[in-house]
Simulated assay, not measured.
Amino acid sequence: MARKVIRRYLPDPAAIKEKPALQFLGDLLHDPNLFHLNRHSVSLAFFFGVFFAFLPVPGQMVLAALCALWVRCNMPITLALVWITNPLTYAPIFFATYQLGRWILDAPTLANSSEHNWAWLMEEFSLIWKPLMLGSIITGLILGGISYIAMQLFWRWHVLRAWEHRKLRRKSRDSE
């Protein structure tokens, strides 16, 4: 089943619950829904993990973890997917989401400057934050929705394939 494929890559729930750094969460981590590997829980984890990965805000993982606690989806998968945007990928991803937001808002392009320092960034931030957030939210919603649907379809395909294999095994057993 798809569950077996995913379980190979996830940490053990008991090991997560025993981490001293997570003891402040108390009984919240003892909710079995946070570690379930079923179609609904994993699909929601894919949606929220991808959505929060595309938000250009500090603390993406904290926001994703709080959301996983709130909607009770698989937390390890949600947190792993937030790392789609990492130090190697965040620049091209956020540039693309900024361009999408700039296109939607019909905002002017930024003036090219030879100096890219903190003062320049603070000055230009007032111009780029709206297109960046709009593009990021739209991209996160679209790609999150696509990943939700893809996981639903993958899970269904995997279950149907397992049923077909069982049918074939039963037929071969019955014909012997």
Rank of each mutant, 00 (worst) to 15 (best):
L105S: 08
P108W: 04
A96L: 14
V62Q: 13
L69E: 00
Y90S: 06
P87F: 10
C67R: 03
V82A: 12
A80K: 10
A68Q: 11
Y90F: 15
A107E: 00
C67T: 14
I104M: 12
L88T: 09
W103T: 04
A65G: 08
P87Y: 13
N86M: 03
P92S: 11
T97Y: 08
A96G: 13
A64C: 11
N74A: 09
A96T: 09
P76W: 05
F94N: 04
W70V: 13
T85C: 08
M61L: 15
L88D: 01
P92M: 10
I84W: 09
T85Q: 00
G59F: 04
T89G: 03
T89E: 03
Y90C: 00
Y98L: 06
R72K: 11
A68T: 10
Q99V: 14
P76F: 11
A65E: 01
Y90E: 04
Y90N: 05
L69K: 02
P108N: 05
M75V: 12
V62P: 08
V62N: 13
T109D: 11
T109F: 10
C67V: 15
R102W: 08
T85K: 03
N74E: 14
V82K: 08
W70Y: 12
M75R: 05
M61D: 11
A64M: 02
N86W: 04
L88R: 02
I77W: 03
T89C: 04
A107I: 00
W83Q: 13
T109N: 10
N86H: 03
G101N: 04
L110P: 13
L81W: 03
T97N: 06
C67E: 00
N74S: 10
L105P: 02
Q99Y: 13
A111S: 15
D106G: 10
L110N: 14
Y98P: 00
R102A: 10
C73S: 06
A65C: 05
G101F: 02
F94Y: 15
C67Q: 06
L81F: 09
F95S: 12
T109V: 09
C67H: 04
A68C: 12
V82M: 10
T97M: 07
V82D: 06
T97I: 07
A91I: 15
P76H: 11
V82Y: 07
P92N: 11
C67W: 06
F94D: 04
L105Q: 07
P108I: 07
P76V: 08
P108M: 03
L79Y: 02
I77C: 05
I84M: 11
N86C: 00
L81S: 07
M75K: 01
I104C: 08
C73Q: 05
M61W: 07
L81E: 04
W70R: 14
T97G: 07
P76A: 09
L79S: 00
T78Y: 07
T78K: 01
A65Y: 00
C67N: 06
A91L: 15
P76S: 09
I84L: 14
I77V: 13
T85W: 00
L79F: 02
